[in-house]
């Protein structure tokens, strides 16, 4: 019984890659980067940048989140399927936010 399990069809979805172990050095660097990001985002909020304030804040948050996903959550070392899964979540989230906002920003169109 065990022999027939050895040669899995590569198309059948079992991607048995060697588990990649991320070490303390990488975690340390990411941790430091996250701390720097936090300091930056606090600092940026005290600067007068007009409409750019929220943009910068979101941008820094996105970079921090990406670092966490890629390294702490090992997505950088995961299979394509996992990367696609994360992408699908992000995509649907953006549809929810984007398409809802499309109604709100266009409600006053043509009425000024």
């Amino acid at each position: 019984m065990s022999e027939e399990f050895q040669n899995h069809d590569p198309n059948s979805g079992h991607t048995e890659t060697e588990q990649h172990i991320v070490g303390p050095a990488t975690y340390g660097i990411i941790f430091a980067a996250l701390l720097v990001g936090t300091a930056l985002t606090i600092g940026a909020s005290y600067l007068e940048m007009g409409a750019w304030n929220p943009v910068v804040a979101i941008l820094i948050a996105c970079i921090k989140a990406t670092l966490v996903v890629l390294f702490f959550m090992h997505i950088k070392y995961s299979s394509k399927l996992m990367k696609l899964t994360v992408g699908a979540g992000l995509f649907t989230f953006l549809i929810l936010v984007g398409m809802s906002l499309s109604d709100y920003i266009s409600r006053a169109w043509g009425q000024w």
Binding site: L96, D103, S106, G110
Partner: peptide, 21 residues
């Protein structure tokens, strides 16, 4: 299926442009 939900809301006060899209 995720792109069409506001067609339940055409008379509910969404913007004309959202209705169109």
């Amino acid at each position: 299926g995720f792109f069409v939900w506001a067609h339940h809301m055409f008379i509910m006060g969404v913007s004309n442009y959202a209705v169109l899209v």
